[in-house]
Computed example of a mutant assay.
Amino acid sequence: MRRVATVADGAGQADAHAMLRRVHLRTTILRVAVLELLAEAAERPMTVEAMAQAMLRRGQPISVPTLYGAVRSLVEHGLVERSRMDGGPALCWIKERASAASHQVVCKICQRHAAGSDAELSAQIARFCAQHGFPLGGQSVLIQTQCADCLRAASSPRSPLPVLALPPAHP
């Protein structure tokens, strides 16, 4: 998958403003801040609670319900994607801009994220869905797995368990 250009790649706030204008969504300080946070965390999707904590550290305290409202509007306008993994908290990230279809891979351990769009994969998904009677609009595929770093850490030899010296048995 190719890497997606995000707010963090360019002019920061200017890109966030452009993204909001493109979807005819009013620019607010909160929406710009959310897009900037998600761009800075490009490979690590964030929960709304983590965004609230990050904003507090930046001196921009915001209530979680208010933040949920801003995220909801960004999701509804196609700028942000939000998905819940294995019953955990929902993760948010900036949506792929190139097409209506997007594909994401998320590490179940560290939450590292890669997103992109692949025309061949999208065509295969569309064929599969059509064969089974599911019409498609823009689809999003989320693959939950473990990244190479987490797999490597899990398979690395751990320190051996200590061997307990037992006292000699008495006859």
Rank of each mutant, 00 (worst) to 15 (best):
V71F: 03
G10V: 00
L37Y: 14
L20E: 14
R97N: 12
R44G: 10
P65Q: 05
F134Q: 13
M85D: 09
H17M: 08
H103I: 07
P61G: 04
E120G: 10
A101Q: 13
I109P: 05
H132A: 12
A42E: 15
E49Y: 10
P89L: 15
Y68A: 13
L79C: 01
G12Y: 03
M19P: 01
H17W: 09
R21M: 00
Q139M: 13
A123K: 00
L136Y: 09
L35W: 07
S63G: 15
S102A: 12
V7G: 06
I109V: 15
R97G: 13
L20Y: 11
G137L: 09
A119P: 12
M85N: 11
S117Y: 11
P45Y: 01
C129S: 04
S63M: 11
Y68H: 15
V48G: 12
E40Q: 15
L136H: 12
F134A: 15
F128A: 15
L30C: 03
Q139W: 14
L136V: 08
A90V: 09
I125R: 14
A33Q: 08
G138K: 00
M51W: 02
D15K: 11
L35G: 10
Q124S: 11
F134Y: 15
A50M: 12
E120F: 06
E96F: 05
K108Y: 12
L79N: 01
A126T: 14
G78H: 00
L56P: 01
A100H: 12
K95V: 04
A114C: 07
A39F: 01
G12F: 09
E81R: 00
A126D: 14
M46I: 00
I125W: 09
C110S: 03
T66P: 06
A16V: 06
P45F: 00
S117R: 08
W93N: 04
G59P: 05
G138I: 01
F134W: 14
A54T: 15
I94R: 14
M51K: 02
V32N: 02
E40V: 09
R21P: 00
D118K: 04
T27D: 13
R82L: 01
G133M: 02
A119M: 09
M55Q: 13
G116E: 04
A54L: 14
A130C: 03
D15L: 13
E96V: 08
G137E: 14
H24W: 13
E43R: 13
D118T: 03
G133P: 00
L136P: 06
E36M: 12
S73I: 13
E96K: 02
A18N: 07
A126V: 09
C110M: 03
H24Q: 14
L25K: 10
G87P: 08
Q131T: 03
I62N: 08
S140F: 00
C110A: 01
M46Y: 04
L37W: 10
W93A: 04
V71L: 03
A39N: 04
L20K: 05
A130L: 06
D118G: 07
G87T: 08
H132Q: 14
M51I: 08
R127Y: 08
H24F: 11
S83W: 07
L74Q: 14
A54M: 07
V32R: 05
A126Y: 07
M19H: 07
C110H: 03
A11N: 11
E49D: 10
L37P: 08
C129Y: 02
G69S: 08
A98I: 05
C129I: 00
A16L: 07
